[in-house]
């Protein structure tokens, strides 16, 4: 993507086949840009909640030990 060094297109997922423009050399803003974090990011907080939910029944049956 070296030819788009001055453009945000250089890191966009659509760059190879984007039909919006043929001039991808100096794009500084695009509402169709795929944000890197949005593509595959699962917030860690969500993982924690999921883990808690799975273990919840087991926890209920456990005895509470106070130190």
């Amino acid at each position: 993507m070296k030819k788009y060094l001055r453009s945000i297109c250089s890191t966009c997922s659509y760059v190879q086949n984007c039909s919006l423009t043929t001039n991808k050399s100096s794009i500084y803003e695009c509402n169709e840009y795929v944000h890197h974090l949005d593509a595959d990011y699962i917030p860690s907080v969500m993982n924690l909640i999921k883990t808690t939910k799975v273990d919840f029944e087991k926890v209920e049956k456990r005895e509470l030990i106070l130190n």
């Binding site: 919006l20 423009t21 100096s26 794009i27 803003e29 509402n31």
Partner: peptide
């Protein structure tokens, strides 16, 4: 009406 809602210089 035209709404260019993507990028510049279109």
């Amino acid at each position: 009406i035209i709404i260019p809602a993507a990028l510049g210089n279109q």
